[in-house]
Amino acid sequence: MTGIETSHQVACHCGTVQLRVTLTEGFASARRCSCSYCRMRGAIAVSARIEGIEFLAGQDNLTLYQFNTGTAKHWFCKTCGIYTHHQRRSNPQEFGVNVACIEGVSPFDFAEVPVMDGVAHPSDAGGRSRIAGVLRFEALD
């Protein structure tokens, strides 16, 4: 899963919300986060600049969730409830895109995914990002 500046189709589970995204670092930016919200959501996200997302359908069917500082904006389909993307608190000029919503991609395609320390968020810890651990997947077949 490599490639730089790659464009992909993105959709929620029911297909109402559809986007085209250009990933800034391809799939090399894949990561999880350990903050209270991301621990519960469990998604792997990849990076796209704000201008790297084009809404194709269903933008009016998105609902927004914000918490704590309100800087990060997390969007979900109102119909199926799937998280598609979020505007990052660590870099509000960037979106995190749910890899499970990218056509032809599964979270299980990644053998290892770094988990960023969202408990000691870079915006609260002097701007330094820290990897808290690594999430591994090993297929049994």
Rank of each mutant, 00 (worst) to 15 (best):
G127W: 02
T79H: 14
V134P: 00
L19F: 09
E138D: 15
N91V: 06
E51H: 07
H74W: 10
I4C: 13
A120Y: 07
E5W: 13
G15I: 11
Q59G: 12
I50Q: 06
T22Y: 08
N98L: 02
C38F: 11
Q18R: 14
E5M: 14
D117W: 10
C12Y: 10
S47D: 04
T2G: 15
D117C: 13
S34G: 12
R39F: 12
L19W: 05
L135H: 03
S29D: 06
L62E: 00
C14H: 14
P122A: 11
A45L: 10
H121P: 03
T24Q: 15
V119I: 12
L62H: 01
H74R: 09
N61Y: 04
F95K: 06
T22V: 12
D60V: 01
A100Q: 03
A72D: 11
G15D: 10
T2P: 08
G104P: 01
A125N: 09
A139M: 05
P92Y: 11
T24S: 15
T63N: 03
W75R: 06
E112W: 01
G26W: 03
G81I: 00
S29Q: 13
C101G: 04
R130C: 12
I131C: 13
C101Q: 04
S123C: 12
E94D: 05
K73L: 07
H85Y: 02
T71M: 13
G104W: 05
E103S: 04
V99S: 06
A48Q: 06
F27E: 02
H85I: 02
G81A: 03
C14D: 12
G133V: 13
G70C: 07
P122L: 09
E54S: 04
Q59H: 09
Q66V: 11
T63D: 05
A43T: 09
L56V: 08
E25D: 13
A11P: 10
C14E: 10
S7L: 05
F67I: 01
N61P: 03
